[in-house]
Protein backbone atom coordinates (compact mmCIF):
# COMPACT_ATOMS: atom_id res chain seq x y z
CA UNK A 1 0.00 0.00 0.00
CA UNK A 2 1.14 3.56 -0.59
CA UNK A 3 2.82 5.18 2.34
CA UNK A 4 0.62 5.42 5.38
CA UNK A 5 2.89 8.00 6.94
CA UNK A 6 2.34 10.71 4.33
CA UNK A 7 1.94 14.12 5.90
CA UNK A 8 -1.62 15.42 6.17
CA UNK A 9 -2.23 17.01 2.82
CA UNK A 10 -5.30 19.12 2.38
CA UNK A 11 -6.76 19.10 -1.09
CA UNK A 12 -8.92 22.12 -0.26
CA UNK A 13 -8.12 24.61 2.46
CA UNK A 14 -10.81 25.85 4.80
CA UNK A 15 -11.38 29.55 5.33
CA UNK A 16 -9.44 31.26 8.12
CA UNK A 17 -12.66 32.98 9.21
CA UNK A 18 -14.15 30.62 11.83
CA UNK A 19 -17.76 31.32 10.80
CA UNK A 20 -17.11 30.70 7.10
CA UNK A 21 -15.04 27.61 7.92
CA UNK A 22 -17.95 26.28 9.98
CA UNK A 23 -20.44 26.94 7.19
CA UNK A 24 -18.16 25.21 4.67
CA UNK A 25 -17.60 22.12 6.79
CA UNK A 26 -19.73 18.99 6.47
CA UNK A 27 -20.95 19.10 10.07
CA UNK A 28 -21.52 22.87 9.89
CA UNK A 29 -23.78 22.39 6.87
CA UNK A 30 -25.61 19.55 8.60
CA UNK A 31 -26.21 21.75 11.62
CA UNK A 32 -27.52 24.56 9.39
CA UNK A 33 -29.96 22.12 7.75
CA UNK A 34 -30.93 20.88 11.23
CA UNK A 35 -31.55 24.32 12.74
CA UNK A 36 -33.64 25.48 9.77
CA UNK A 37 -35.42 22.12 10.00
CA UNK A 38 -36.31 22.79 13.62
CA UNK A 39 -37.83 26.13 12.61
CA UNK A 40 -39.86 24.41 9.89
CA UNK A 41 -41.04 21.72 12.33
CA UNK A 42 -42.19 24.44 14.74
CA UNK A 43 -43.98 26.23 11.89
CA UNK A 44 -45.67 23.03 10.69
CA UNK A 45 -46.85 22.28 14.22
CA UNK A 46 -48.15 25.82 14.73
CA UNK A 47 -49.85 25.81 11.34
CA UNK A 48 -51.58 22.52 12.21
CA UNK A 49 -52.82 23.91 15.55
CA UNK A 50 -54.23 26.90 13.66
CA UNK A 51 -55.92 24.65 11.09
CA UNK A 52 -57.47 22.48 13.79
CA UNK A 53 -59.49 25.51 14.87
CA UNK A 54 -61.83 24.51 12.06
CA UNK A 55 -63.33 22.05 14.55
CA UNK A 56 -64.21 25.00 16.82
CA UNK A 57 -66.31 26.60 14.08
CA UNK A 58 -66.35 29.43 11.57
CA UNK A 59 -66.01 32.23 14.10
CA UNK A 60 -62.80 30.87 15.64
CA UNK A 61 -61.08 30.27 12.30
CA UNK A 62 -61.94 33.66 10.86
CA UNK A 63 -61.06 35.50 14.07
CA UNK A 64 -57.69 33.71 14.21
CA UNK A 65 -57.03 34.57 10.54
CA UNK A 66 -57.88 38.20 11.21
CA UNK A 67 -55.63 38.18 14.28
CA UNK A 68 -52.70 36.85 12.20
CA UNK A 69 -53.30 39.45 9.45
CA UNK A 70 -53.44 42.13 12.13
CA UNK A 71 -49.97 41.31 13.41
CA UNK A 72 -48.49 43.47 10.64
CA UNK A 73 -44.72 43.76 10.94
CA UNK A 74 -44.49 40.70 13.24
CA UNK A 75 -46.24 38.62 10.58
CA UNK A 76 -43.83 39.87 7.93
CA UNK A 77 -40.83 39.18 10.16
CA UNK A 78 -42.08 35.63 10.70
CA UNK A 79 -42.65 35.23 6.97
CA UNK A 80 -39.16 36.53 6.19
CA UNK A 81 -37.56 34.09 8.65
CA UNK A 82 -39.70 31.27 7.27
CA UNK A 83 -38.75 31.99 3.65
CA UNK A 84 -35.09 32.29 4.62
CA UNK A 85 -35.29 28.98 6.53
CA UNK A 86 -36.85 27.23 3.52
CA UNK A 87 -34.27 28.64 1.09
CA UNK A 88 -31.28 27.87 3.34
CA UNK A 89 -32.62 24.38 4.17
CA UNK A 90 -32.87 23.56 0.46
CA UNK A 91 -29.69 25.24 -0.80
CA UNK A 92 -27.45 23.71 1.88
CA UNK A 93 -29.06 20.28 1.42
CA UNK A 94 -28.35 20.42 -2.31
CA UNK A 95 -24.70 21.26 -1.54
CA UNK A 96 -24.46 18.32 0.87
CA UNK A 97 -26.17 15.96 -1.57
CA UNK A 98 -23.72 16.96 -4.33
CA UNK A 99 -20.74 16.37 -2.01
CA UNK A 100 -22.16 13.04 -0.93
CA UNK A 101 -22.61 11.89 -4.53
CA UNK A 102 -19.03 12.90 -5.30
CA UNK A 103 -17.81 10.86 -2.32
CA UNK A 104 -19.01 7.63 -3.98
CA UNK A 105 -18.13 7.98 -7.69
CA UNK A 106 -18.35 4.25 -8.37
CA UNK A 107 -21.59 2.71 -7.11
CA UNK A 108 -21.84 -0.83 -5.77
CA UNK A 109 -23.20 -3.32 -8.30
CA UNK A 110 -25.07 -5.09 -5.52
CA UNK A 111 -25.78 -3.00 -2.47
CA UNK A 112 -27.69 -4.57 0.38
CA UNK A 113 -29.14 -2.02 2.82
CA UNK A 114 -28.90 -3.11 6.44
CA UNK A 115 -30.41 -0.23 8.40
CA UNK A 116 -31.50 2.64 6.13
CA UNK A 117 -35.27 3.11 5.99
CA UNK A 118 -37.35 4.16 2.98
CA UNK A 119 -37.94 7.53 4.67
CA UNK A 120 -34.21 8.17 5.17
CA UNK A 121 -33.29 7.13 1.63
CA UNK A 122 -35.93 9.34 0.00
CA UNK A 123 -35.42 12.58 1.98
CA UNK A 124 -34.42 14.61 -1.05
CA UNK A 125 -37.44 13.36 -3.06
CA UNK A 126 -39.97 13.72 -0.24
CA UNK A 127 -38.55 17.20 0.37
CA UNK A 128 -38.89 18.21 -3.28
CA UNK A 129 -42.46 16.87 -3.44
CA UNK A 130 -43.33 18.86 -0.32
CA UNK A 131 -41.80 21.96 -1.94
CA UNK A 132 -43.98 21.47 -5.06
CA UNK A 133 -47.01 21.10 -2.81
CA UNK A 134 -46.13 24.24 -0.81
CA UNK A 135 -46.01 26.26 -4.04
CA UNK A 136 -49.45 25.00 -5.08
CA UNK A 137 -50.76 25.48 -1.53
CA UNK A 138 -49.67 29.13 -1.54
CA UNK A 139 -51.23 29.68 -4.98
CA UNK A 140 -54.48 28.13 -3.76
CA UNK A 141 -55.00 29.58 -0.28
CA UNK A 142 -52.56 32.48 0.15
CA UNK A 143 -52.39 34.21 -3.25
CA UNK A 144 -55.66 32.60 -4.40
CA UNK A 145 -54.33 32.59 -7.96
CA UNK A 146 -55.83 29.21 -8.76
CA UNK A 147 -59.16 30.13 -7.15
CA UNK A 148 -59.75 33.92 -7.42
CA UNK A 149 -63.33 33.43 -6.19
CA UNK A 150 -61.93 32.84 -2.64
CA UNK A 151 -60.98 36.53 -2.49
CA UNK A 152 -64.60 37.64 -2.19
CA UNK A 153 -65.63 35.27 0.58
CA UNK A 154 -66.79 37.22 3.64
CA UNK A 155 -68.54 36.18 6.83
CA UNK A 156 -71.31 38.13 8.57
CA UNK A 157 -68.68 40.35 10.30
CA UNK A 158 -67.15 41.18 6.89
CA UNK A 159 -63.99 39.26 7.75
CA UNK A 160 -62.31 37.13 5.08
CA UNK A 161 -64.14 33.79 5.36
CA UNK A 162 -61.19 31.40 5.70
CA UNK A 163 -63.52 28.74 7.10
CA UNK A 164 -65.64 28.70 3.93
CA UNK A 165 -62.48 28.80 1.80
CA UNK A 166 -61.16 25.62 3.47
CA UNK A 167 -64.47 23.84 3.00
CA UNK A 168 -64.79 24.87 -0.66
CA UNK A 169 -61.20 23.81 -1.30
CA UNK A 170 -61.43 20.39 0.30
CA UNK A 171 -64.91 19.56 -0.98
CA UNK A 172 -63.19 18.69 -4.24
CA UNK A 173 -62.06 15.07 -3.77
CA UNK A 174 -59.12 15.44 -6.20
CA UNK A 175 -57.74 18.42 -4.24
CA UNK A 176 -58.18 16.55 -0.95
CA UNK A 177 -56.49 13.44 -2.32
CA UNK A 178 -53.57 15.50 -3.64
CA UNK A 179 -53.37 17.24 -0.27
CA UNK A 180 -53.34 13.92 1.65
CA UNK A 181 -50.60 12.59 -0.63
CA UNK A 182 -48.51 15.72 -0.06
CA UNK A 183 -48.97 15.46 3.72
CA UNK A 184 -47.93 11.80 3.49
CA UNK A 185 -44.61 12.87 1.94
CA UNK A 186 -44.29 15.60 4.56
CA UNK A 187 -44.81 12.99 7.30
CA UNK A 188 -42.23 10.67 5.71
CA UNK A 189 -39.78 13.59 5.55
CA UNK A 190 -40.45 14.48 9.20
CA UNK A 191 -40.27 10.86 10.29
CA UNK A 192 -36.57 10.83 9.42
CA UNK A 193 -36.06 14.57 9.87
CA UNK A 194 -37.16 14.72 13.49
CA UNK A 195 -34.72 12.08 14.78
CA UNK A 196 -32.02 13.38 12.41
CA UNK A 197 -32.25 16.83 13.93
CA UNK A 198 -31.75 15.41 17.41
CA UNK A 199 -28.72 13.46 16.18
CA UNK A 200 -27.24 16.35 14.16
CA UNK A 201 -27.63 18.93 16.90
CA UNK A 202 -25.69 16.63 19.20
CA UNK A 203 -28.46 15.84 21.66
CA UNK A 204 -28.69 12.11 20.90
CA UNK A 205 -27.04 9.45 23.04
CA UNK A 206 -27.40 5.73 23.66
CA UNK A 207 -29.95 6.23 26.43
CA UNK A 208 -32.39 8.33 24.42
CA UNK A 209 -31.84 7.13 20.84
CA UNK A 210 -34.69 4.60 20.84
CA UNK A 211 -37.04 7.16 22.30
CA UNK A 212 -35.91 9.75 19.74
CA UNK A 213 -36.49 7.56 16.67
CA UNK A 214 -39.85 6.32 17.95
CA UNK A 215 -40.75 9.86 18.98
CA UNK A 216 -39.96 11.07 15.45
CA UNK A 217 -42.26 8.48 13.94
CA UNK A 218 -45.07 9.21 16.38
CA UNK A 219 -44.72 12.95 15.88
CA UNK A 220 -44.80 12.72 12.09
CA UNK A 221 -47.83 10.43 12.00
CA UNK A 222 -49.65 12.70 14.46
CA UNK A 223 -48.92 15.58 12.12
CA UNK A 224 -50.24 13.46 9.23
CA UNK A 225 -53.40 12.52 11.14
CA UNK A 226 -54.02 16.11 12.22
CA UNK A 227 -53.70 17.66 8.77
CA UNK A 228 -55.50 14.92 6.85
CA UNK A 229 -58.39 14.80 9.35
CA UNK A 230 -59.57 18.17 8.01
CA UNK A 231 -60.25 17.22 4.34
CA UNK A 232 -61.62 13.87 5.55
CA UNK A 233 -64.04 15.61 7.93
CA UNK A 234 -65.12 17.97 5.17
CA UNK A 235 -65.60 15.18 2.60
CA UNK A 236 -67.70 13.02 4.94
CA UNK A 237 -69.76 16.08 5.89
CA UNK A 238 -68.62 16.37 9.52
CA UNK A 239 -67.71 19.99 8.87
CA UNK A 240 -70.10 21.95 6.66
Amino acid sequence: MPSATASPTQTKRGSSNPFIAFCQSSIGKKIIVGVTGVYLIVFITGHLLGNLEIYLGQDHVNAYAQFLQGLGPILWLERAILIAAVVIHIVVTIQLAAENRAARPQKYAHYNYQAAKPSSRTMIYSGLLVLCFVIYHLLQFTFMTTNPEYRHLEDHLHRHDVYRMMILGFQQPIISLFYAAAIFFLAAHLSHGFSSVVQTLGINNQKVSGFVSNGGRWFSWLIFAGYVSIPVSILIGLIK
Binding site: Q24, K30, E99, Y113, H192
Partner: peptide, 22 residues
Protein backbone atom coordinates in the same frame (compact mmCIF):
# COMPACT_ATOMS: atom_id res chain seq x y z
CA UNK B 1 -10.03 15.85 12.18
CA UNK B 2 -13.39 16.95 10.73
CA UNK B 3 -11.79 19.40 8.30
CA UNK B 4 -9.24 16.81 7.18
CA UNK B 5 -12.06 14.30 6.71
CA UNK B 6 -13.91 16.85 4.53
CA UNK B 7 -10.79 17.72 2.56
CA UNK B 8 -10.09 14.06 1.80
CA UNK B 9 -13.45 13.78 0.04
CA UNK B 10 -15.54 11.74 2.47
CA UNK B 11 -19.26 12.51 2.42
CA UNK B 12 -21.37 13.55 5.37
CA UNK B 13 -23.75 11.64 7.59
CA UNK B 14 -27.43 11.56 6.59
CA UNK B 15 -28.35 9.33 9.54
CA UNK B 16 -29.05 6.08 7.68
CA UNK B 17 -26.95 4.21 10.29
CA UNK B 18 -25.65 1.70 7.74
CA UNK B 19 -22.23 2.22 9.38
CA UNK B 20 -23.39 1.05 12.79
CA UNK B 21 -24.99 -2.05 11.22
CA UNK B 22 -21.71 -3.28 9.68
Amino acid sequence: MVRTMDALGFGSCTNHYECEAV
